[in-house]
């Protein structure tokens, strides 16, 4: 069976400062795949290049048997590839509901906007209470919920999440990962980019480690957790 997402030898960057060097990655339908690495390793560039926001310099990106390497960002979203961007990137002076509705405005999802909105509120009851509040006035955890909800409104097949736990309290972090696990159990494929190695590898079936724009280690999460290099570099053991 062909993978849902398949990246072959992808490079991207500007003027000799490459942020990705020959990265290859696959994700099968129903999987959660983790991409971990430190600051500046290239994780956000990876997400943005896949999403069509950053141009690639060489390599290929395939999603559902379609070559999306040169595709425009809105076309990629229409195909079912959604994003929870790093730092949330909400629209701070619009209401929670407006933020969510904008996420669902794509052709693939606009006719089911009402139902999708109900589902998001079901998943995040706190957002329903705050539906008319300006997104910029919410707490960090609530904003993350909006960001995830906004991506879900597009009825995606695959969601890329860029550091969803960043800046959240430990309780919120746990709740976040619980939600992500639940979404995966419900059938959503997830590409999870994180600095938090333990939690993300616990959730994922497989993982990739990015260092200095290159994939240095890859494998099943269980194996990675036992790997000495990872234990020393990222787990401080």
């Amino acid at each position: 069976m062909t993978p849902l997402l398949s990246i072959k030898n992808l490079s991207a960057g500007y003027h000799g400062a490459l942020a990705l060097i020959k990265v290859s990655l696959t994700l099968n339908e129903g999987e959660t795949v983790a991409v971990v690495g430190g600051n500046g390793a290239g994780k956000t560039t990876l997400i943005r290049t896949i999403a069509g926001m950053v141009p690639s310099t060489c390599g290929e990106i395939w999603f559902q048997n379609a070559d999306i390497t040169q595709a425009r960002n809105d076309v990629i979203c229409e195909l079912g590839l959604a994003q929870v961007p790093e730092g949330r990137q909400l629209f701070p002076d619009l209401s929670v509901e407006d933020n969510l509705n904008l996420g669902g405005a794509l052709k693939r999802s606009r006719h089911s906007r009402r139902q999708n909105l109900e589902r998001v509120f079901g998943l995040f009851p706190r957002l329903q209470e705050r539906r008319r509040q300006m997104a910029g006035t919410l707490s960090g955890g609530e904003q993350q919920m909006v960001a995830i909800g906004r991506a879900l409104m597009a009825e995606p097949k695959l969601v890329m999440m860029d550091e969803p736990s960043l800046g959240l309290s430990p309780i919120m972090v746990e709740m976040m990962f619980e939600t992500i696990a639940q979404l995966n159990r419900d059938g959503l494929s997830i590409l999870l980019v994180e600095q938090n190695v333990t939690e993300s590898l616990a959730l994922a079936t497989r993982g990739y480690v990015l260092e200095n724009a290159e994939v240095v280690i890859e494998g099943r999460s269980a194996d990675l957790l036992k790997d000495d290099r990872i234990r020393r570099a990222y787990l401080g053991l």
Binding site: M53, A82, P85, L90, F91, P92, A154
Partner: peptide, 18 residues
């Protein structure tokens, strides 16, 4: 609202396929 969104956060706008 999409225009407002673009004026408030262009990255967010691109990320969700506007």
């Amino acid at each position: 609202k999409a225009l407002q969104a673009a004026s408030q956060n262009i990255i967010g706008g691109r990320a969700i396929g506007i």
